[in-house]
Design a protein around this nucleic acid. Structure first.
Lengths: 347, 347
DNA sequence: GTGAAAGCGCTAACAA
DNA sequence: TTGTTAGCGCTTTCAC
């Protein structure tokens, strides 16, 4: 219970081991070019004193921080209706931990916070940033790119100004949607409706594209834009049933929407999947398992997305590497992860 | 797009403003004791150069970091089946941001990670820690207390070794449970069952106590220990129905469990709430709204819990203050937040 | 292979 | 009120 009084310094360790500070430093940082017996002596001294390097002092000279910012820009409550970010965080955390990096979490509450985040990032407190921003018109990504910090985005960024260079990780929204709709078609369904998400988000737009890849643009009446919420799903489902009473399948852009749709279908006396088959997207648990009937849906490997984002940031070619200055790295700007159709009872 | 070359230092600002570094420092840190015209000159130079203080250099001398660690020790997937932590994080983040503190997120994956976290905390990289650890036998809280870092716990800590001094924030699990069960009694229900959570978690134990406050210990057959999962809820509900077919109400220790119970009740042909009334705990959205019927449940103000934790940590009496050395602060060790019964259709 | 010494950018006495 | 100066604890040339 020795009170934190003042923690031992390199100096103290050096004294104890009977070597110079430089030697201790070398040992602490990997021990390259120090002879074995000395290494051992220093290790022991470190152990005995419970020495932990002072990161501030180290950063001051190395200009590295071994810290990465995770920026989550989600003004709405959606972040919390959804374990999505939590899972990605887990993936990110694992990868960062494996490389001895710390995770600094920056949550933004709205536009006011943007300046704060931009300042922080520009302030060089972290070695890079992982950014989640879902809306096309979000000014934050621009601010961040301007801050000159190496960045990897979560989800395909929607802006278009020479953004070919932005590194990102996304899941295969389009392919997943295609698989879902194709599955409905294979079931013999011919009037397949789609409840979209907010189309200012690339994930929603991509899922719509996937739907169209299979059914074409033939029946615009079968597509309703919604908002990724259960309430929106209900409204959309009602509209669809009013417009096309004979529809026999629904592909909802996410599970929340699908849950709302399911309720309306039940309320209107449609049996699922007998009369109308339903597929969602996300495999959001426990929701997808708890709906009635349990929801067939498209799963994405969210944790892996997080891990990959961190890996891309950490392993990007260093500032001195050929072909780039680090911030605007290398070739493969975007990485897209596969999705899987999870069959339950609803389709 | 000026590449981060090297950011301006205090020195540069001083030169530009024609003053000394000390003066710039004073202005940057609030401007106390500097005459107005100078303040203005310095501010301008800061602006023009886009100066941002180097936190590492500052920490090195002040030994403060304006950073707080949030430690989430949850080996299981529960963290992510539940927006609980995300919400608390939001609350914490808001409060920290308001006081210009950064949030360093430490997720632990299991025992292996404990040493890492303990080392980090002991390393003096942060000014304090907010710790979530749900299990009685978790060694992490002990390690952390040993690290000598000011700490506030999320949820009443369960260990007993002189832990009267540990600061924590919890919601009124016992009172909430009492309100739920009392509501069931007011509905005229007389055979009220309880599906508990894992009793090695104080929240589950406290909810059981609340239940007993109302119904007493009379009917042990009406209480089944479960695990906070839907599957566990199903199993518990089956056991309950087998043992006490005539039961007319169930208080489930959380919404996930309640959802499982609801399914079994339907499957066994019991109408809810007519035959059996059901109440959950948490008000976990969207689940609680999407069950059939929508779930009556006990809501806790999760975000406020987070905010309060941060506030307690930030405003704790400083190291020099009377009556304590900061780590083992003042009087009110624990703060308990009220809960609210949310009435929906299930009870 | 090892040590001595020079800062990294900042704050905090202390002097002026 | 302002400036001068001495470090904070560490890494990193550069000699030896």
């Amino acid at each position: 219970m020795t009170e934190a009084a003042s923690r031992p310094t390199l100096e103290a360790v050096a004294a104890r081991a009977g070597v110079s500070r430089a030697t201790v430093s070398r040992v602490v940082n990997g021990g390259e070019g120090v002879r074995e017996p000395l290494v051992e002596r220093v290790r022991q001294a470190v152990e005995e004193l419970g020495y932990v390097p002072n990161q501030a002092a180290r950063s001051l000279v190395t200009r590295r921080h071994d810290a990465v910012a995770v920026v989550i820009a989600e003004p709405e409550d959606r972040v919390f209706a959804d374990p999505f970010f939590a899972r990605q965080l887990r993936g990110i955390s694992k990868e960062l931990t494996a490389h001895d990096n710390q995770l600094v979490l920056l949550l933004t509450e709205g536009r006011d916070d943007h300046a704060r985040v931009a300042r922080y990032l520009a302030g060089g407190h972290v070695d890079g940033a992982l950014v989640f921003s879902l809306h096309l018109d979000d000014p934050l990504p621009g601010l961040i790119r301007h801050a000159g910090v190496p960045t990897v985005f979560g989800g395909r960024p929607g802006w278009s100004d020479g953004a070919g260079r932005a590194a990102y990780v996304d899941s295969d929204n389009r392919g997943g949607a295609r698989a879902a709709v194709r599955h409905l078609a294979d079931l013999g369904r011919t009037r397949i409706a789609h409840i979209t998400g907010p189309l200012d988000q690339t994930s929603a737009a991509d899922r719509l594209d996937g739907y169209r890849d299979v059914v074409g643009h033939a029946e615009p009446l079968l597509v309703v834009e919604s908002d990724f919420t259960p309430g929106g799903g209900e409204r959309a489902m009602r509209a669809l049933l009013d417009r096309v009473p004979g529809l026999d399948a629904v592909f909802a852009a996410n599970d929340l929407t699908a849950a709302g749709a399911l309720r309306v279908l039940r309320e209107r006396g449609r049996r699922v999947p007998d009369d109308v088959a339903v597929i969602g997207f996300d495999d959001m648990l426990p929701l997808a398992e708890q709906t009635d009937p349990p929801l067939t849906t498209v799963r994405q490997d969210i944790e892996e997305m997080g891990r990959l984002m961190a890996r891309m940031l950490l392993h990007r070619p260093g500032p001195g590497a050929p072909g780039g200055d680090g911030a605007e790295a290398d070739a493969a700007a975007g990485v897209v992860l596969p999705t899987t159709l999870i069959r339950r009872a609803s389709a």
